[in-house]
Simulated assay, not measured.
Amino acid sequence: MTLSEARVEEGKTALAERKIVAPPKNVLFATDFSPTSESALPYATAICRRFGSTLHVTHVLSDTSLLAMTGGVDYVSMGTIYESALQEAQEKIEHMALRFEGIPHHTHVRHGLIWQNLSEIIAEKEVDLIVVGTHGRTGLGKLLLGSVAEDILRHAPCPVLTVGPKVSGRAKLPAFPATGRDLAPIELEVRQILFATNFAHNAPAVARAAVSLAGAFHARLTLLHVFEDYTHLGSQPDLIEQGVRRLHELLPNDVALQYPPETVLEFGPAAERILRVASAREVDLVVLGARTAASAGSTHLPWTTDHQVIAQAHCPVLTVRE
């Protein structure tokens, strides 16, 4: 149940356009050409149109997938299948590029370890946003092969926008037609943003990203903290006041938004409460702080929470790491 909901002071209603986090210059869209990954493509193109970003569409041919095609280790067959798979991938990615009229873009088809290739492109092209789709059937799910999507979230040096299988309603962008170019550019409309935090050490940086997006889209912003352990609430009634205060303190002092941000405290399982608030407020974007590969003992939202939110959310989820 919700025990506290408070509005931040009404004075923060001007200067909505002030930028505290730069818009992305280079967006990487990782695809395996499946319907799952294709569902994230409209978000990548819409972001690039809105911010004037360059789009990098990337597909990686892994040895594991090629071995699966051969049915075993047959090096003659491997070479033949590799050439065929490479040609097919290049044709698909070139056909995909026909939809990017007016968007600066580059296509990349690589061979080898998936995350290694993606990380090289991220570094080479100075990528500052990654867009991926996931089916969410096993936790976060498998985007390309194995735990590639989780590798991206754990290791990516930039924010990651994940489009899960249950994105629907106003937050769901229409798919591109199977053939031909899109008749009208798809626009990304964000009216409600939910930032959920458990006050990890990089929470201020994640909050700045959420505030910046709220300003850029003239959206309403909700800051949420979930108390999963509230057994001490009776003996420490000031926990509610402390939670609201800490949420307020995450807001940058020098930036104001068109709409006063709201703070919400919830009690219970984190993922369940985040999803409940997101649904009730019909949010268009959830912003979370992501754990790094080396922060297993940190206070970031645990991977199980990230997985559940991404897999169940009716809107895209933006994860931001330090």
Rank of each mutant, 00 (worst) to 15 (best):
E9H: 08
T13P: 04
P23C: 00
A30K: 09
T31R: 05
D32S: 12
F33H: 11
F33W: 09
P35I: 10
T36E: 10
S39P: 07
S39A: 14
L41F: 14
C48A: 13
H56G: 02
H59K: 11
L66K: 06
M69E: 13
S77H: 07
M78I: 02
H111C: 02
L113P: 01
L118T: 03
E120A: 09
E120N: 02
E120K: 11
I121P: 00
L143E: 08
S147I: 05
D151S: 08
I152A: 03
T162A: 15
P165D: 14
P165T: 14
S168L: 02
L173Q: 05
G180E: 09
I193F: 02
T197M: 13
A203P: 05
A214R: 06
G215Y: 04
R220G: 14
P237E: 09
P237Y: 03
L239H: 05
H248D: 06
E249I: 00
N253G: 13
P260G: 12
E266W: 00
A271L: 01
I274M: 04
I274G: 14
D284I: 10
V287H: 07
V287W: 03
A290F: 02
R291K: 15
A293R: 15
A294I: 01
S298A: 14
S298Q: 14
V309I: 12
